[in-house]
Amino acid sequence: MLGQLVAGVAHEMNNPISCIISNIRPAQEYVADLTQILQLCQQHYFQLPPIIQDAIAQADIEFLLDDLPKLLNSMQISTERIKDISVSLRNFARADTSVKVKFDVHEGLDTTLLILRHRLKGLGQRPEIKVVRQYAPLPKVECYPGQLNQVFMNILANAVDALEDIWQQGKRVNDSLAINICTEMSSPEDVTIRIFDNGIGMTDEVRQRIFDCLFTTKALGKGTGLGLAIAHQIIVEKHGGAIKVNSTLNQGTEFVIVLPLKEQHELDA
């Protein structure tokens, strides 16, 4: 259901985005032509009628001719950004399959990060959250990609929350806010994904309950307490893997996910 909703939103975004992208280039060419004509008029007509001179002065035409191409370039960059988000949403939705398929976990991580990029940018006094990727060469994993992306989304969104919390509490003012993502082959049959943030961290008591259903450290109205419980269910029950958390209060949190490359009965065959 979630995949269908996301796919529908991405599809509805695609047509207007394509229209804007296809029209920006001719608009830039039209502006360039009009700019050249106006500049030629200024060069060859020294005594323009007063009404035109007044209009030029009121419009600040020199600034206008300089700024308008920059404005169109900014629009082009923004539409390309929206197109990237639309592609990521479609990829996220396509991953929502009811059967296990071979999946590139790096693609899932990158797609999730792109969707969350608005939360990674600097906000007010809070600096940008840096993401450091250390990806090892990995084979594709046989899994439910949509469910795996849901796990990545829950963990990464929680990491952003933890970084925002430590910044607001003034405990990470001079240090950068960062999320590190590392992948490796932990054995010939398993891949390991480590997601570490240098955020607020947690106490041992909280760490021991973090995967309990309905347990949350968030304020009322800011969480359901289902995200990490579902993540645990997806990794352990649906994929036969393992997930654990290492954390130190005011230093950070690391989630470690271990996934088998194939289903257990295939490995035993």
Rank of each mutant, 00 (worst) to 15 (best):
L120G: 03
I17W: 08
L38F: 03
V258H: 11
E80C: 07
F103V: 05
L220T: 15
V131C: 11
E62Y: 06
S78D: 08
D212S: 12
K100P: 01
Q251R: 08
A159D: 07
T192V: 12
F211D: 01
I85Q: 00
L48G: 08
G170I: 02
I181N: 00
H232V: 06
Q264M: 10
G227N: 02
N250F: 06
A55K: 08
L48Q: 12
Q39L: 14
D96E: 15
L64M: 06
V206L: 09
P26T: 01
C182Y: 08
F211W: 03
M1V: 15
A59Q: 04
Q47R: 09
T224M: 15
T35Y: 01
A95S: 09
I56S: 05
L114W: 05
I210S: 00
V87Q: 10
D110I: 12
Q251T: 07
L68M: 10
D33T: 07
K222Y: 14
D190Q: 15
I21T: 09
Q53T: 11
D268S: 15
R90P: 02
I82A: 10
E164Y: 01
G252T: 02
A242E: 07
V99S: 12
N198L: 12
I210A: 00
D197M: 03
S22H: 01
L34E: 10
E205A: 15
L220S: 15
I21N: 06
F46E: 12
A7V: 05
E263T: 14
C182E: 10
Q169K: 13
H265F: 14
I77S: 04
I20F: 09
G252N: 02
H44M: 09
Y30D: 04
A178E: 11
E237N: 11
S98W: 15
Q233E: 11
T253I: 09
N149K: 01
I166R: 05
M153T: 13
D190I: 11
K100R: 14
Q28W: 03
I56F: 09
H106W: 03
I166Y: 05
G223P: 00
L163E: 01
Q147D: 11
A242R: 04
E80S: 06
H106V: 05
A229Y: 08
G252R: 00
N154D: 12
